[in-house]
Amino acid sequence: MSAASEFAQLHKLTPEGAVAALQARGQLSVSYAWQDVWQEEHGLQFTVSRLARLDLLQAVHQAIVKSVNGDLTRKDWMDDIEALLTQAGWWGTKAVTDPADGNVKLTTFDPARLRLIYDTNTRQAYAAGLWERVERAKRTHPYLRYITRRDGRVRHEHAAWDNLVLPVDHPFWKTHWPPNGWRCRCRVMSMSQAEYDRGYSIERQGAERDAGAQGVYKRFNTQEPVVPLREYVNPRTGEVLHVPEGIDPGFAYNPGQARQLAMRQQIQSKLAAAVPALGQAARDAGLNKGE
């Protein structure tokens, strides 16, 4: 099972929300470093660093949408994209000229790169779809629980957030919505008031779960964590940013909130360009909320 499929299974999320999030990112952006499209900008933009042909970008984007929609496995996607890039002369190592500084830089497309592209984009898409589902359900499930994979690969900071339970509207989720870094496997789960009041989860592992074993009682952590910030200088802009410890630069945002913000901005832009009477009619009908 691929990491992306495993991620989707863990969330028990139908792909509609993820597909919608991917389709919303239909604005193709040629970039020469992953920092060129930063955090919330991914709400509308799709890019693959140093893939400097819009037709190839479009094909990669459309194929990921098809895969999340169930029409392609990750292996199918990788095979198709490898064939596409090979035919276009982009498979392997290629030299591209970065317009930011005029320097020629090397970029490599190989199976490892394709896996990273696929997993990052699908996980972010599922994260956006999951947030929308969480918001719809927050009247009956007003809390969220952070859950790690609890193995030796979990980052130290992420392990400290395991079983942390906070309200849906807590600002923590604006910056700590998984995935919180490259290949992060953390997830969140909605909780009802009754589950929160119980104060603990029952953890079962593998065969124990199948055998109906009682499992281990693990108390919730309901204390707001203190998250130190570290400086990160964006090498593309020189901007000094402050990133929470434990979050990879570029991941300190909530993809679902980013998508909602991007859609609102897009709608506002269209309304501003419309004939005044039509724009006002749309606002009166509540079409400017982007929901």
Rank of each mutant, 00 (worst) to 15 (best):
R145A: 04
Y32Q: 07
S31D: 03
Q9C: 00
A262F: 05
G250P: 14
Q223I: 15
V19A: 03
A262V: 09
Y200H: 09
V134Q: 04
D80K: 10
L241I: 14
P235V: 06
G246R: 05
N234C: 13
R150D: 07
R53F: 03
R204N: 14
W91H: 12
T14A: 05
A18I: 13
M191R: 13
V134F: 06
A282M: 03
T93S: 15
E157R: 01
V65P: 10
N288V: 03
A125C: 14
G92T: 12
K94I: 15
H158S: 00
W182R: 12
A33T: 11
N163K: 07
L85K: 04
E195A: 10
R115W: 04
L287Q: 01
A277K: 04
Y143T: 06
S49H: 10
N254L: 08
L166R: 02
Q124D: 11
V216I: 14
T108I: 01
M1W: 03
N254W: 06
E132N: 03
W177K: 00
I267C: 10
S269E: 07
T122Y: 05
W34H: 13
G290C: 00
Q205A: 15
S2L: 08
S269T: 10
R139L: 01
G43K: 08
L261Y: 06
P255F: 00
A63N: 15
R198G: 07
T73G: 06
S67F: 15
W182H: 11
P178K: 07
G152R: 00
N163G: 01
D169T: 02
Q45I: 12
H156N: 00
E16T: 12
T108P: 02
P167D: 04
L166M: 06
A213C: 13
D169Q: 01
Q266R: 02
A258T: 05
S67T: 14
P111Y: 00
W90K: 07
P249F: 12
K94T: 12
Y126S: 07
T140A: 11
E41I: 04
Q23P: 07
H42E: 10
E239R: 15
N163I: 00
V154F: 04
M78Y: 05
P171M: 05
